[in-house]
């Protein structure tokens, strides 16, 4: 028997999670599709469901400043539309969110849902990996924070325990002068990704001070190599330019996509590297 719950607040939501492990459903834009059945019958949910989309305590986006760093905290039920519209949302995240589906869906879907769905083709995930997002997880009486790279463990798999709930996503707001998010979809709107790319980087004194390069839908999870990024740190623009082919060669070993109904492995790899090359050229011109 599948039950459904509608908690009145976060506290009750956490206790329902603890007691029944009911699956949280915020916008429902992934879950209602995944568990759809014959029109006119109930969705084929395997577990009990807890509706959380209405919980106001998590429907916020705020900027927190502490010492010299500031963070954008996106509440667990904040919609994609609200993320896209917030003035402090980093440009790559904004573009990633706006590349998802269409306005009607974005009005209902939540950023947290996109992450918990943990699709390798999840567009916001590609950007959040590059932005070093941290996932805030709560259960009754405790709270932990997990980097997104550790939160997602495989296609559709996360570290979220049955008693826990993602209550917020923290996005560090760092200086970033060269930003790019590109989604290559199956068409120009309302499309799923064949692949996606995010690049964020900043220079200090003519040298790359920070850089993150991520690739979506080219592996079981978003691909990001901190080791390869380290090799780029401290380089000047002109040094980057001379190393482009070596960098591409490095990345061609970590980008190992597959063939599926949306695209081919060969295309995904080639275009991922092309997007990286385009980004690196732009980066090299910026210093």
């Amino acid at each position: 028997m599948v039950d459904s719950y509608r908690p009145k607040d976060l506290k009750e939501a956490l206790s329902i999670r603890a007691e029944h492990g009911a699956m949280p459903l915020a916008g429902g834009t992934d879950l209602m599709v995944r568990y759809q059945s014959w029109t006119g019958t109930l969705p084929l949910f395997k577990n009990s469901i807890m509706f959380i989309g209405h919980l106001k305590e998590m429907k916020y986006i705020k900027k927190e400043a502490k010492d010299k760093t500031s963070t954008l905290v996106i509440g667990g039920t904040a919609t994609l539309t609200s993320v896209a519209n917030h003035p402090e949302t980093p440009v790559v995240l904004k573009e990633a969110v706006l590349s998802i589906a269409a306005p009607a869906l974005r009005n209902n879907a939540t950023l947290t849902g996109n992450i918990c769905n943990a699709s390798p083709a999840g567009d916001s995930i590609c950007a959040l990996y590059a932005l070093d997002a941290v996932i805030v997880i709560e259960k009754t009486g405790s709270r932990r924070e997990v980097p997104i790279t550790e939160f997602i463990t495989g296609p559709g798999r996360t570290v979220l325990a049955e008693s826990e709930l993602v209550t917020a996503i923290k996005v560090p707001l760092k200086a970033s002068s060269v930003n790019n998010f590109t989604k290559v979809g199956t068409r120009k709107a309302n499309a799923l990704s064949k692949l996606s790319f995010t690049g964020v980087a900043d220079y200090k004194n003519g040298r790359v001070d920070s850089i993150a390069l991520t690739f979506g839908a080219v592996g079981p999870t978003v691909v990001r190599s901190v080791e390869l990024e380290k090799k780029l740190k401290g380089l000047s623009g002109s040094e980057i330019e001379t190393k482009i082919s070596a960098i591409l060669e490095d990345y061609s070993t970590v980008i190992v996509p597959i063939d599926d109904q949306r695209s081919s492995a060969v295309y995904r790899k080639k275009v991922a590297l092309n997007l990286l090359e385009k980004y690196l050229r732009e980066l090299s011109r910026h210093e």
């Binding site: 199956t186 068409r187 120009k188 709107a189 309302n190 499309a191 799923l192 109904q261 949306r262």
Partner: peptide, 27 residues
């Protein structure tokens, strides 16, 4: 251009509206 409909062991691989894409007004 985009309406790819391939067979895999005799079944159509693109069988959802997400995967069998027809043009939108932006295309």
């Amino acid at each position: 251009s985009i309406e790819k409909c391939e067979l895999k062991n005799g079944a159509f691989m693109q069988h959802t509206m997400a995967d069998y894409t027809i043009p939108t007004s932006l295309d």
